[in-house]
Nucleic acid binder design. Structure first.
Lengths: 192, 192, 192, 192
DNA sequence: AATGAATGAGACTTCATTCAT
DNA sequence: GATGAATGAAGTCTCATTCAT
């Protein structure tokens, strides 16, 4: 059997390939059920090659989480900055749209960072906090806890992303609009 | 440690102990990070004892999931039955209260069955479906998808349970009320 | 659960029961595939009871082997003693009859001692030796090795016991006759 | 021992080594008393290496049995085909010679497949059947059951292989001749 | 740049055996 | 005489990781 460098092979290409496959497998099957052997098999490479590009299994996973986390927090920071003035609903709408766009473009990473990772709780908590502050300033939550509202919104985003965005049943922009509609009904026409 | 029966030992006690510890550890650390050795160590027993009372690690975990699933689906069935007549908001309020009460009484089991288990997705999807039908009958969602509303509600429940119920910041009844308030704002003229 | 001595129970009866079941299971499934738990389960007793009557698994098995061995060697000794005078064929016929009778009466023990046990090789070798000497004295094995004849006879006995005696297709006496007929054809109509 | 590839190591060599050692140990000590740790220790390798080349302990054992079984049955088929015409004794002589040659060349495999394996009973029964048919066509078994003859022959082969072939006291060809002589005596000098 | 070959560490599980009642 | 409850010891197998080429 021939060994060594393959014709037409390139380090960067292999690394990218491994990274993409790892992301997909981790997102689909979780950290523990995804074996290095699975990853390299899917990439048509071998196990030592994996260690050529990544320190080890865990650090790769952590990197993926971190990557999501950074994007997410960056987004959140932007939201906070923009928060000063302007219309709340417009603001939220813009933010959700961007968020859903990112989620839709990076479903695997999102699955890992927003659903699987232990840190995902932290992210969601932060998100809630920001929303809470945002809302507290503007809306009169006459008799109810603003935290409920904030957590609910985050939960809705979480669930809707999974059920309607990842399944491609809804587009990011539309989803943002509809979520907004639910939480800020224009005219709540509710007959029993 | 000497072999054989311990002084003052009782099978039922040991089994219960192991079950409780296993439930707690699984819920805290997940299936893979929880070793049988951890479970028995915490129970001050040895590994073979585990197999005296449980078939194996996986089947114990599955049993826990099943236990949650049964309770949850039973609850859901009750909701469906009661759905025929009556005021929607009252109905939901009662159901959520019961649900939150169950969650609060069984936090570890809930963590496993509603958050960790692969089947949890299925449960939530079913929950959404039921809610969707319930709502569709009564409310006029003028221009928006009732699924959004249903998924959002489920997501809210999920998140709020984790952040406010499990942390004991809210009581089940109150949480139910507040969630209802968010989704059916009084000033939103939604009387039945 | 009640513990302690059962009504109507008797130590000797339990011991005999365990012994019989153990013999059957060992003979059917072999030493390794037969578990103490299987034995006591079949006897409707519990594991500690086993140790009340037997030192341990191996020693019980060894006892069974020894029991067979003793009977077998005793038989062999009788054959050697009777060997001095008399008609060879009659002698063999009588011996085989007795042997087959013992085998037929103790199929489980025979299975263990003559087929499974490592010592069975030793027994068969001894058997061969005795036959060889017996034959050597009387028959003129013009040009062939008497060992072949002796080993063949033992092999025939071994196989025929399994296939025709244990299956109850043949009675001990008849089997003895027929074997003799094969090895000492009266009218050796042996055309090529 | 350091991890990773050894100097001068080769997969095929290791696999063959393990296979050979396993065959020997299984044949000598049986399935249960042969531990994987014994096999790899004898090969100066470690346990995971075993799993690099074999599915697991049982499947390796089954493979060995199958290997023997295939050779044996192939042989038997040839015997059946050649059975149509020709001299019976010559036929048998040729067959036994080939059989003994195979046994002598593969003593470990034969020990496993013809003596230890549960399937060995099936093989011997088939062998008997074939012999029985072969004999029934040609010889006049005036008053005796041909099965006796067939089973005896198989038993003789079994025993003689163990006692004279494996010990290298006899060559395959000679053993075949002598067995034939016993069962088809030229001049049956059978005085009592 | 990549692979073939191997291992350390550890998890799960089984089974004979033993105490305490 | 018998059992309920437990364990020591060991075996099989898996997986991430590493050396030598």
């Amino acid at each position: 059997m021939p060994r060594g460098r393959r014709v037409n092979s390139s380090g960067e290409k292999s690394k990218k390939l491994l990274l993409d496959i790892a992301t997909e497998l981790f997102s689909k099957y979780g950290y523990h059920k995804t074996k290095i052997s699975d990853i390299v098999k899917a990439a048509n490479l071998t196990q030592p090659t994996f260690y050529l590009y990544f320190e080890n299994k865990e650090s790769l996973y952590r990197d993926l989480i971190l990557q999501f986390k950074n994007s997410f927090l960056e987004n959140l920071d932007r939201l906070k900055e923009e928060a000063k003035g302007g219309n709340l609903i417009d603001l939220l709408h813009r933010h959700l749209t961007v968020l859903f766009q990112y989620f839709a473009s990076n479903p695997y990473l999102t699955k890992i960072g927003f659903y699987q990772a232990e840190e995902s709780e932290e992210l969601k908590a932060k998100f809630s906090k920001v929303l809470e502050e945002l809302l507290a300033e503007r809306i009169e939550f006459s008799e109810h806890d603003p935290r409920i509202f904030a957590h609910s919104l985050v939960g809705a985003i979480e669930r809707v992303t999974l059920m309607l965005l990842f399944t491609k049943e809804k587009e990011p922009e539309q989803l943002a609009s509809e979520i907004i509609n639910v939480y800020f009904p224009k005219t709540a026409v509710c007959k029993s």
